[in-house]
Design a binder for these strands. Structure first.
Length: 319
DNA sequence: CAGGCGTGGCT
DNA sequence: TAGCCAAGCCT
């Protein structure tokens, strides 16, 4: 249904919306899908300024992506983080022959596409009249309906309740922009909000109290020694195979151990890398001893490999 | 279902 | 500045 709040929202969107986002007016399901995956847990600015265009330049179509290697895709993803997204994007390109499916049911079965992304692709690429539910929309819903906490199920119900099914596309875009520009997590600009009069939190005068903040968990610190084995201007790396940074290349880490530091190893420096679930403090050493299970590569070769931020810092120490 | 999963922007 | 948190997904 189309209500007065929707009229206010659309008017606000026409005037203040982010109409220059390159994926916004695309009808190509491929580019919209790539943008949606890149934007998972990632700010618009980062994707927009550094990753979206170069990626599509290298892989302009689904067919190009499918024809690439996983390492080439990871290299394009280097620096963006959450690399499982890159591997899932590649996997999906192998799976679907011509184009992404259109139904939410089918989309959600593809690797890396959950309920939120499936709705977004359906809404933006295929103009399916369904609401989307991202972090921006969630924050608006919490405040608009005056809820301190809500389950995913409840949030979807609220998303459908507020939805404007007469202008679904514009409504969805408007909601994301409103959440990003006005109903912000640390500063709510209610005076500029088209929902101000209908919004429960705004009427209570305390929008920032919603939603209820989660208890902060302390992040563990891991201390490691990283050893760069070298021989004749080549350095030993291997491709990571665990869940963490899977597929990226890197130097070898060891539990911090005085024995390592003592021998003939020379310390190059140290790095700090803050991951979402732990912080890494590592001393970096160089060793001229031979090592098994690695590839000895020149700096030129190393720079062509997909590397994590921490390993890039170490490569910089070598140059 | 809580935690693993990267990196950088913003306050 | 240090910490929060950003167009989530998977296990």
């Amino acid at each position: 249904m189309h209500k007065p709040v929707h009229t206010n929202l659309l008017r606000w969107y026409e005037q203040y919306g982010r109409h220059n986002l390159p994926w916004r007016h695309s009808r190509d399901s491929y580019t919209i899908w790539i943008s949606e995956i890149m934007l998972q847990q990632t700010q618009v600015t980062t994707v927009l300024e550094r990753f979206y265009t170069p990626f599509l330049q290298q892989f302009p179509t689904l067919r190009d992506l499918a024809a690439a290697t996983e390492e080439e895709v990871l290299k394009q993803w280097e620096g963006l983080g959450y690399y499982t997204r890159a591997r899932n994007v590649y996997k999906t390109a192998q799976l679907v022959e011509h184009a992404l499916p259109q139904s939410i049911h089918e989309l959600i079965q593809l690797p890396g596409i959950g309920k939120s992304t499936a709705h977004a692709i359906a809404a933006f690429a295929y103009r399916t009249p369904v609401p989307i539910l991202d972090a921006n929309v969630k924050r608006i819903l919490y405040r608009f309906f005056g809820k301190k906490k809500a389950s995913e199920r409840e949030l979807w119900a609220l998303a459908y309740r507020l939805f404007d099914d007469e202008h679904p596309f514009e409504y969805n875009q408007a909601m994301m922009d409103l959440g990003s520009l006005v109903c912000r997590s640390k500063e709510a600009l209610c005076v500029h909000c088209p929902f101000e009069m209908q919004c429960h939190a705004a009427q209570q005068g305390a929008p920032l109290e919603l939603p209820e903040k989660k208890a902060v968990k302390s992040v563990p610190i891991r201390y490691k020694d990283i050893v760069v084995f070298t021989c004749k201007n080549r350095y030993a790396l291997k491709q990571r195979s665990g869940r963490f940074l899977h597929g990226l290349w890197g130097f070898s880490e060891y539990e911090q151990n005085r024995d390592n530091a003592e021998g003939q190893m020379q310390q190059l420096g140290s790095i700090v890398q803050k991951y979402s679930h732990f912080h890494l403090y590592a001393d970096v050493y160089i060793s001229y001893e031979p090592v098994e299970g690695h590839e000895y590569l020149t700096l030129e070769e190393i720079n062509k490999l997909p590397l994590s931020k921490a390993d890039i810092k170490i490569v910089k120490m070598l140059t």
